Amino acid sequence: MTVATTDAALVLEDGRIFRGAAYGARGRTLGEVVFTTGMTGYQETLTDPSYHRQIVVQTAPQIGNTGWNDEDDESDRIRVAGYVVRDPARRASNWRSTRSLDDALTDQGVVGIAEVDTRTLTRHIREHGAMRAGVFSGDALVTDAAMLEAVRASAPMRGADLAGEVSTAESYVVPPRGETRFRVAALDLGIKTNTPRQLADRGVELHVLPSGSTVDELLAVAPDGVFLSNGPGDPETQTAAIELTRQVLAREIPLFGICFGNQILGRALGLGTYKMRFGHRGINIPVLDAATGRVAITAQNHGFALEGEPGQRFDSPFGTARVSHHCANDGTVEGLRCSDVPAFSVQYHPEAAAGPHDAAPLFDEFVTLMEARHAQTH
């Protein structure tokens, strides 16, 4: 595949411009530029709703080798705002592939750029932080000044209320595989496809609710447990979800949150959140369990985090809680556990195959929590 090297541009809000070749759809796209360190799993990355309004840079140099299939999507479509790669595969080669990555991006209107020095770009983001950016190609490739003006006029990620943009519009039910053991209400803040599968495998009938659902709508499901999903944006904007979580905690309904759900639970318990410099995004991030000392290799995708220290205990309106997990790389809060109400959460993705299954037992722990609550109330 021979292409020109100056028919696309990635423009950062600090004025840095990376030039390359158009990849995927042609046009203009704006968002926050972030990098992910996963060597595999680009299809799951692209379809993860947590990447909504983000331009994703792949640090792995070769992307697209296995093409695109019809089984691995984490939602109903590609969710990233834009895509940046170094060396796209000229030919897809995998027995499950139905089309190329380039075709998938083009068909879904995702503007990308290839032949970028992604190592330099990643170092720039690490040094200066995730920031607003734009990918421009085709007729949208205009003067540098005009492109930079468009980027700087775009909305920042801090203060962005995005969960409602990726949440389901209507409630739906995912049946269990086999006998129904428990009924769980899941608040869809940007839920990934594999999460309901993990719960269904454990006999859970999952009722997926829109992000704006009220406590009465949740209680109408008569849930044995409540699940808070992953999702995009600034957790500080999620006042309704935070209040809903407080109502669940007050009723002592077993609760499990992941990623964005971890931040929602934390804010419900009285912790603050902050925007990270460049976030955690990848499938190789070590997390330490304070109680056991064990380290799990995890998949993560978040640009905000909870305030707190490893192993910290703190008082909340619902009793004592503690920071149960932290990142072994930088000490970031990676999990919470309540002592007086049945609730816990983690910042990473136990449904993803990172370690490959180091964190999968967390779903079993959620089931155990519901079993204990059922035995107590009956």
Rank of each mutant, 00 (worst) to 15 (best):
I258F: 05
A268I: 06
I258H: 11
G266R: 07
I253N: 06
I253W: 07
I264D: 03
L244M: 12
L255N: 03
L249F: 04
A250F: 00
C259I: 11
I264E: 01
L271F: 11
T245S: 04
N262K: 10
G266N: 06
I258D: 03
G261F: 02
F256Q: 09
Q247T: 10
V248L: 05
L265H: 09
F256Y: 14
I242M: 10
C259E: 07
Q263C: 09
L249Y: 05
R246C: 00
G266H: 01
L244V: 13
G257L: 01
F256H: 13
L265V: 11
G261N: 05
L265A: 06
G270H: 08
L271H: 09
I242R: 13
R246G: 02
I253M: 09
G261P: 08
Q263R: 12
L249M: 04
I258G: 11
T245E: 01
G266Q: 07
T245R: 03
A250G: 15
L271V: 13
A250T: 14
C259S: 08
I253S: 08
C259R: 02
F260M: 14
L265D: 05
A250Y: 10
I258L: 15
G261D: 10
T245A: 01
V248E: 01
V248W: 01
P254D: 09
L255G: 05
L271G: 10
A250D: 15
I242F: 08
I253T: 07
E252R: 15
T245H: 03
Q263Y: 08
R251C: 09
I264F: 01
P254E: 08
P254H: 13
I242C: 01
L269C: 03
A268H: 06
F256P: 00
L255V: 04
G261E: 08
P254V: 03
A268K: 09
N262A: 13
L269E: 02
T245W: 01
E243K: 14
G257D: 11
A268D: 11
R246I: 08
G270I: 13
N262C: 15
I253V: 14
R267H: 03
G257N: 10
L271D: 02
R267V: 15
L249W: 04
L244W: 04
I264G: 06
A250H: 14
R267Q: 14
I264R: 02
Q263M: 15
L255C: 06
